[in-house]
């Protein structure tokens, strides 16, 4: 059985290596993906049209704004579905476990102090990643995940309750909804001002800038909405999974 598996792996690997020779070279200007007129438009005109140096961010939040809007909605829906399935009534027996856990946690000074030091740095970095998506890899999804991760770190190193004291369950779900609302609200404002849905250039009257800079600002607003949803849904999912939907005890 083992040799059979090895043979299968070797044959598949050899086929994959053989097929990879047919790929165009990395960054080849003559490859089909680079020659199609849409991608040429993106590559040549992105900076002119949106004043965003990072092409990926501009395509994600501006040209393909609908796609990203519904990705955010998908994350929101997934979080709500997980909460709806897992969240149960608070069990009174859990309180006993909590008391013994408290003794356990108090002894672990090193972990608590390190997390006290690191959590603010991680959260600051998350905000940097969100705000700097225009110029470097990053954006709402990545920054939101980092921010949610910092809250999860807080819950792991202390107790779930410590993190829930900062961001309660209600607040987390509310913030997730606020994120989707910011995103679709920006689109709706565009619609009300007479443009297309998510056509940020129409916002230039509202923001007192030229239409190109308005697109850049619109992208930033949208990214902030995405970050709200992703961060709070990450934390809400962790809180439900680790405590079996009881929001007490935790890991």
């Amino acid at each position: 059985m083992k040799t059979l598996g090895a043979i299968a792996v070797i044959i598949t690997g050899a086929l994959l290596l053989y097929a990879s020779e047919d790929f165009p070279a990395w960054g080849d200007p003559h490859s089909p993906a680079s020659q199609y007129r849409v991608s040429q438009h993106y590559i040549l005109k992105t900076f002119e049209e949106t004043s965003v140096p990072n092409m990926v961010t501009a395509i994600l939040a501006d040209y393909r704004g609908y796609d990203t809007l519904f990705e955010t909605v998908v994350i929101f829906t997934a979080g709500i579905a997980i909460i709806a399935i897992l969240r149960g009534p608070i069990d009174k027996r859990v309180r006993l476990r909590l008391a013994s856990e408290k003794k356990l946690r108090e002894s672990n000074l090193i972990l608590a102090q390190t997390c006290r030091l690191l959590v603010p740095i991680i959260q600051l970095f998350a905000l940097y990643v969100i705000a700097h998506g225009h110029h470097s890899p990053g954006g709402g999804f990545q920054g939101g995940v980092i921010f949610g991760g910092s809250l999860i770190l807080l819950a792991i190193s202390f107790q779930l309750q410590t993190a829930l004291d900062r961001v309660s369950e209600k607040k987390a779900i509310l913030l997730a909804g606020v994120g989707v609302l910011i995103y679709s609200g920006i689109g709706l404002v565009c619609l009300l001002l007479g443009g297309n849905f998510l056509d940020y250039s129409i916002l230039h009257n509202l923001l007192q800038v030229d239409p190109i800079t308005a697109r850049s600002h619109g992208i930033l607003g949208v990214e902030i909405g995405v970050a709200f949803t992703v961060a709070s849904i990450m934390f809400a999912i962790y809180a439900n999974l680790s405590s079996r939907g009881r929001m007490k005890g935790g890991l």
Binding site: N108, I110, L111, T114, L117, L118, I121, S157
Partner: peptide, 12 residues
């Protein structure tokens, strides 16, 4: 960052 987190995670 790594010199802080590495030993701490091992300890944990």
């Amino acid at each position: 960052f790594i010199s802080l987190t590495g030993p701490t995670s091992t300890h944990a």
